[in-house]
Amino acid sequence: SYYEILDVPRSASADDIKKAYRRKALQWHPDKNPDNKEFAEKKFKEVAEAYEVLSDKHKREIYDR
Rank of each mutant, 00 (worst) to 15 (best):
residue 1 S to Y: 11
residue 1 S to K: 09
residue 1 S to P: 05
residue 1 S to C: 14
residue 1 S to G: 14
residue 1 S to F: 10
residue 2 Y to N: 02
residue 2 Y to A: 04
residue 2 Y to T: 01
residue 2 Y to K: 02
residue 3 Y to G: 00
residue 3 Y to A: 00
residue 4 E to W: 08
residue 4 E to D: 13
residue 5 I to C: 06
residue 5 I to P: 01
residue 5 I to M: 07
residue 5 I to H: 04
residue 5 I to N: 03
residue 5 I to A: 06
residue 6 L to Q: 00
residue 6 L to A: 00
residue 6 L to M: 05
residue 7 D to L: 03
residue 7 D to T: 03
residue 7 D to P: 01
residue 7 D to F: 04
residue 8 V to H: 00
residue 8 V to N: 00
residue 8 V to Y: 00
residue 9 P to W: 06
residue 9 P to T: 07
residue 9 P to A: 09
residue 9 P to I: 06
residue 9 P to S: 11
residue 9 P to C: 12
residue 10 R to Q: 11
residue 10 R to P: 14
residue 10 R to L: 10
residue 10 R to I: 13
residue 10 R to G: 07
residue 11 S to D: 15
residue 11 S to W: 15
residue 11 S to M: 08
residue 11 S to V: 06
residue 11 S to A: 09
residue 12 A to E: 01
residue 12 A to G: 05
residue 12 A to F: 02
residue 12 A to Y: 00
residue 13 S to T: 13
residue 13 S to Q: 05
residue 13 S to L: 05
residue 13 S to W: 02
residue 13 S to K: 06
residue 14 A to V: 13
residue 14 A to T: 13
residue 14 A to M: 15
residue 15 D to A: 12
residue 15 D to W: 07
residue 15 D to P: 06
residue 15 D to R: 10
residue 15 D to N: 09
residue 16 D to A: 11
residue 16 D to I: 06
residue 17 I to R: 00
residue 17 I to W: 00
residue 17 I to N: 00
residue 17 I to E: 00
residue 18 K to Q: 08
residue 18 K to P: 00
residue 18 K to N: 13
residue 18 K to Y: 15
residue 18 K to F: 14
residue 18 K to W: 13
residue 18 K to L: 14
residue 18 K to H: 14
residue 19 K to R: 14
residue 20 A to P: 00
residue 20 A to V: 02
residue 21 Y to F: 13
residue 21 Y to M: 05
residue 21 Y to E: 02
residue 21 Y to D: 01
residue 21 Y to C: 06
residue 21 Y to R: 04
residue 22 R to P: 03
residue 22 R to T: 14
residue 22 R to K: 15
residue 22 R to M: 15
residue 22 R to D: 15
residue 23 R to S: 14
residue 23 R to A: 15
residue 23 R to Y: 08
residue 24 K to D: 02
residue 25 A to H: 12
residue 25 A to S: 14
residue 25 A to Q: 13
residue 26 L to H: 10
residue 26 L to D: 15
residue 26 L to W: 10
residue 26 L to M: 14
residue 27 Q to V: 07
residue 27 Q to A: 07
residue 27 Q to P: 02
residue 27 Q to C: 07
residue 27 Q to G: 03
residue 27 Q to L: 12
residue 28 W to F: 12
residue 28 W to E: 02
residue 28 W to H: 04
residue 28 W to D: 02
residue 28 W to S: 03
residue 29 H to V: 05
residue 29 H to S: 14
residue 30 P to R: 04
residue 30 P to D: 05
residue 30 P to L: 04
residue 30 P to N: 05
residue 30 P to E: 06
residue 31 D to E: 12
residue 31 D to T: 10
residue 32 K to P: 02
residue 32 K to A: 14
residue 32 K to R: 14
residue 33 N to Y: 14
residue 33 N to S: 06
residue 34 P to S: 12
residue 34 P to R: 11
residue 34 P to M: 13
residue 34 P to E: 14
residue 35 D to K: 09
residue 35 D to N: 14
residue 36 N to K: 10
residue 36 N to P: 03
residue 37 K to I: 12
residue 37 K to Y: 12
residue 37 K to S: 08
residue 37 K to H: 08
residue 37 K to C: 06
residue 38 E to W: 09
residue 38 E to I: 12
residue 38 E to H: 09
residue 38 E to L: 11
residue 38 E to F: 08
residue 39 F to H: 10
residue 39 F to R: 06
residue 39 F to N: 07
residue 39 F to A: 15
residue 39 F to W: 13
residue 39 F to D: 09
residue 39 F to K: 08
residue 40 A to V: 05
residue 40 A to D: 03
residue 40 A to Y: 09
residue 40 A to L: 06
residue 40 A to K: 03
residue 41 E to K: 11
residue 42 K to R: 12
residue 42 K to A: 13
residue 42 K to L: 13
residue 42 K to N: 09
residue 43 K to F: 08
residue 44 F to H: 06
residue 44 F to V: 04
residue 44 F to S: 10
residue 44 F to Y: 13
residue 45 K to F: 09
residue 45 K to T: 08
residue 45 K to H: 11
residue 45 K to Q: 13
residue 46 E to G: 04
residue 46 E to C: 09
residue 46 E to Q: 12
residue 47 V to S: 04
residue 48 A to R: 15
residue 48 A to I: 15
residue 48 A to Q: 15
residue 48 A to G: 09
residue 49 E to Q: 09
residue 49 E to D: 11
residue 49 E to I: 09
residue 49 E to C: 08
residue 50 A to N: 01
residue 51 Y to A: 03
residue 51 Y to S: 02
residue 51 Y to M: 04
residue 51 Y to V: 03
residue 51 Y to W: 09
residue 51 Y to N: 03
residue 52 E to D: 12
residue 52 E to M: 11
residue 53 V to Y: 05
residue 53 V to P: 01
residue 53 V to I: 13
residue 53 V to N: 05
residue 53 V to E: 03
residue 54 L to Q: 00
residue 54 L to N: 01
residue 54 L to D: 00
residue 54 L to Y: 00
residue 54 L to R: 00
residue 54 L to G: 01
residue 55 S to W: 05
residue 55 S to I: 11
residue 55 S to A: 08
residue 55 S to T: 06
residue 55 S to L: 06
residue 56 D to L: 02
residue 56 D to R: 03
residue 56 D to Y: 02
residue 56 D to S: 07
residue 56 D to C: 06
residue 57 K to G: 10
residue 57 K to P: 15
residue 57 K to E: 15
residue 57 K to W: 10
residue 57 K to H: 10
residue 57 K to M: 11
residue 58 H to A: 14
residue 59 K to R: 14
residue 59 K to C: 09
residue 59 K to H: 05
residue 60 R to S: 02
residue 61 E to C: 11
residue 62 I to W: 10
residue 62 I to H: 13
residue 62 I to M: 14
residue 63 Y to C: 03
residue 63 Y to I: 03
residue 63 Y to D: 03
residue 63 Y to R: 02
residue 63 Y to L: 04
residue 63 Y to T: 03
residue 63 Y to N: 02
residue 63 Y to F: 05
residue 64 D to S: 02
residue 64 D to W: 01
residue 64 D to I: 01
residue 64 D to M: 02
residue 64 D to F: 01
residue 65 R to Q: 14
residue 65 R to M: 13
residue 65 R to V: 09
residue 65 R to A: 13
residue 65 R to W: 07
residue 65 R to L: 11
